[in-house]
Design a protein around this nucleic acid. Structure first.
Lengths: 289, 289
DNA sequence: TTTAATATGATAGTTGAACTTACATATTGA
DNA sequence: TCAATATGTAAGTTCAACTATCATATTAAA
């Protein structure tokens, strides 16, 4: 593309409208300017090409051969551009919201609630991508992510969705008949830990748990830890937000809460303007907490 | 075409270059502006669409899916426009010069000289359209006309190419042995007149010719008048410019010159800029007189 | 023919989109 | 760690684009 060969795009736009409507005045009304602006542009084009493009015919204008030829190309070219712009606008409004989140948060927090969003906004489709891997919102075309952390991600906006305070939980049957309100009460139960989550182990050490004398069972995923807890195999450390629902329902027993440590689940977005659909979804999210 | 749906064309142009070159800096150099100007345009587009179009990748930039889709349309659209502009520029420089002139001037003045123009400018083709009818330079797509008259045509530029002084000519054989330097000397010869040219008859009356006592032969075209003169049938009134060459060659005899009356052959053009080829042709014309 | 409505023609004056300047920050390769 | 080369951002400037205005041209209806 040699941009030097192309005269003022505003002038070409003015001429395109003039050619299509056979009138400066009509073109001016379409482009929301005065007829003088249009006429100046068209005269400038004629000077640029040393070629008459339009001439007076009665009340309006008619195209010369040269003007007609140029107009054909302009209509086709600008049409293509308009189409591209149109497609982009449509795509922005109709494509599914793409959201990256951790599998545990998806399973234990979002899935039980997402039905309400779908009922309220049946026209907005949401594409949930559970993955522990960090993603680049821009490169991987996610509109939003829900991440566990301290709330600081370079170059991204984030706000706290749910506190990340950890707690110890067990199956109600397992601790039935026990006081089970502090760690000492359940010191004889095995610990069920996800292999990757070393920080949760460290947290327990800080709470006075002695791994030398405790039984420890490791699992690959948090989903397997939950399955083990439900099988009454032992105790698990989980963010309170993830297990609150099941505790309230009596499906899990809360053994004890651990100290706050400043972590939490954050809604992470790209800075700047957000699509209407994303704004709607985030508003809904805030209503859930 | 709904121009309201299309954002700033300058911004689209900036984005097109950015997308093609994967760099603000390169786009800026191509468009002869600073990188800041390009960046502002692209950011404005992103805000307009609420959609990221480019993101940093190493030293340069990469396109998002949305950016890539838009870029495709823009390249195609702007390409079409560039092509139209290019064709128009080429057409202006390569299409034949189209010139309207009177048949008599073409035959008697221009044709004997045009060979020299073709030799000097073999690349410029000239389309001569002999016609007595007045033409609209713009509507009929003529670059230029040569017309006989007073030099004032509304809305058109004109300059005098050759004086239009009339003279009386005859075949040399016809007036051989006569003094033939004034009208009285040849009062007994017939007048050969073109039917339409009543003003030339009026001119003769003003010169003292008595049509009551003279023989008059009328012809439909000036070419037939010339043929009749060459057949030694009588006298003819012609603009001096048209017969000067033949008088100099001895092919015609000049009987007498008539009074000046302010008419002449004019080069008539549209006001404003002229194509290079037309300028060249007009320059050559002036050299011939 | 006159008048009213609606065009284009032309130009001096105004304005804001586009641009430059300037400095900060980020990435890469030597 | 430094030099080279990007992008990020904001304040300030400028000129292309636009408006306002008046003149002129065309058409249709009175």
């Amino acid at each position: 593309m040699d941009w030097h060969a192309i005269p003022s795009l505003s002038a070409l736009r003015a001429f395109e409208a003039t050619a299509r409507l056979n009138s400066f005045s009509k073109a001016a009304r379409e482009l929301n300017v005065t007829h003088a602006a249009i006429a100046q542009h068209v005269r400038a084009l004629e000077a640029e090409f040393s070629e008459t493009l339009v001439f007076r015919q009665g009340r309006g204008l008619a195209l010369t051969q040269a003007g007609s030829a140029l107009s054909d190309h302009l209509q086709s070219g600008f049409g293509e551009i308009a189409q591209g712009v149109e497609q982009l606008r449509n795509a922005t409004n109709t494509r599914p919201l793409s959201i990256s989140l951790t599998p545990a948060f998806a399973t234990n927090w979002l899935m039980p609630r997402i039905g309400s969003f779908w009922r309220e906004h049946p026209d907005i489709s949401v594409n949930l991508n559970p993955s522990s891997a960090l993603v680049d919102l821009t490169r991987d075309a996610f509109d939003m992510a829900i991440r566990f952390g301290e709330g600081t991600w370079r170059g991204l906006d984030a706000f706290l969705l749910a506190e990340g305070d950890f707690c110890v939980v067990a199956h109600p049957d397992l601790v039935k008949g026990r006081r089970a309100t502090c760690l000492e009460d359940v010191a004889d139960f095995p610990w069920l830990l996800e292999g990757k989550m070393r920080e949760r182990g460290a947290l327990l050490v800080k709470e006075g748990v002695d791994f030398e004398t405790s039984t420890i069972k490791m699992f690959d995923t948090n989903a397997m830890v939950f399955a083990a807890v439900n099988a009454k195999l032992g105790l698990s450390v989980q963010p309170y937000a993830l297990v609150k629902d099941q505790i309230d329902d009596g499906k899990l027993a809360l053994v004890c809460a651990l100290d706050r440590h400043g972590l939490g689940y954050y809604v992470v977005t790209r800075p700047g303007l957000q699509s209407q659909n994303l704004t709607t979804f985030i508003k809904w999210l805030r209503k859930q907490v």
